[in-house]
Computed example of a mutant assay.
Amino acid sequence: MSDIILYTGNACIAADGKGRFVLPLEMRRQVKLSSAGENKLYLSLHIENGCATGFGESHRSFLFAEVEALEREARAADRPFNGDLERELRLGMIEEATFDEGGRFALSADIKEEIGIKDTAFFYGVGRYFQIWKPEALVESADRPALIRNKVRRWLDQRAAEKR
């Protein structure tokens, strides 16, 4: 297992008839690589961006190690640091999911409700993890790159036209 797994790429995905989403192929490969060959996916919330995050075991371990390093630095500098709270913020919302060989997995009802996802999601690789967005929310997010916002808007427009 490599120490650093980087997620790139993006895709708009509609849920199947059972409400499951398909993890894009390259992201699926990276999750498996990160999770020692297992189809084990970790999901959490990105509070600042209003989206969910997905990643494999290596990033979950990185988050824990990062808090440990911050705690050591604070102790060495004689600064206050609440390691328990930081672990709670970074690790406490992580949920484990599995995906089948076709990449199908279920987002928990809690995560779907928090970010407003119903039957479509946008997967966006951003480095050590990927983001999962309600497509309309990403389009409205002025902080996201225009290229990505426009791609998602076009996909939503095309999907709406197909439903007519």
Rank of each mutant, 00 (worst) to 15 (best):
S2M: 11
I4N: 12
I5L: 12
L6P: 03
L6V: 15
Y7C: 10
T8Y: 06
N10D: 10
A11C: 08
A11K: 12
A11T: 12
C12H: 09
I13L: 09
A14F: 07
A14K: 12
A15I: 02
G17L: 01
K18Q: 13
G19S: 04
F21H: 04
F21W: 00
V22G: 04
V22R: 07
L23N: 01
P24F: 01
M27Y: 05
R28V: 05
R28T: 04
R28K: 14
Q30E: 15
Q30M: 07
V31K: 12
V31Y: 07
K32C: 07
K32Y: 00
K32F: 00
S34T: 02
S35H: 04
S35R: 08
G37E: 05
G37V: 03
Y42G: 00
L43W: 06
L43F: 05
H46M: 01
I47L: 13
I47K: 13
E48G: 09
E48A: 15
E48C: 06
C51D: 11
C51N: 12
C51G: 04
A52W: 01
T53N: 07
G54L: 14
G54R: 05
G54T: 01
E57K: 11
S58E: 13
S58L: 08
H59E: 15
R60N: 06
S61K: 14
S61T: 13
L63Y: 05
A65W: 01
A65S: 14
V67C: 09
L70A: 11
L70F: 14
R75G: 09
A76E: 15
A77L: 15
D78N: 15
P80L: 04
P80S: 11
P80N: 05
P80R: 08
F81T: 05
G83V: 03
D84G: 10
R87M: 02
L89A: 03
L89S: 01
R90D: 01
L91D: 07
L91V: 00
G92E: 02
M93A: 13
M93S: 12
E95K: 08
E95L: 09
A97M: 09
T98N: 13
T98E: 14
T98F: 12
T98W: 07
T98C: 06
T98Q: 11
E101Q: 14
E101H: 10
E101R: 13
R104C: 02
R104W: 06
F105L: 10
F105I: 06
I111F: 07
I111Y: 12
E113T: 12
E113I: 01
E114S: 12
I115H: 05
G116P: 04
K118L: 11
A121L: 01
V126N: 05
F130A: 04
Q131V: 10
W133P: 09
K134V: 01
P135D: 15
P135M: 05
E136I: 08
A137L: 14
L138Q: 06
L138D: 08
V139G: 02
E140M: 07
A142H: 02
D143M: 00
R144E: 14
R144S: 06
A146L: 09
R149F: 00
N150K: 00
K151L: 10
K151P: 03
K151E: 08
V152Q: 01
V152K: 04
V152S: 00
V152M: 05
R154S: 07
D157N: 14
Q158T: 09
A160L: 13
K163E: 12
R164I: 08
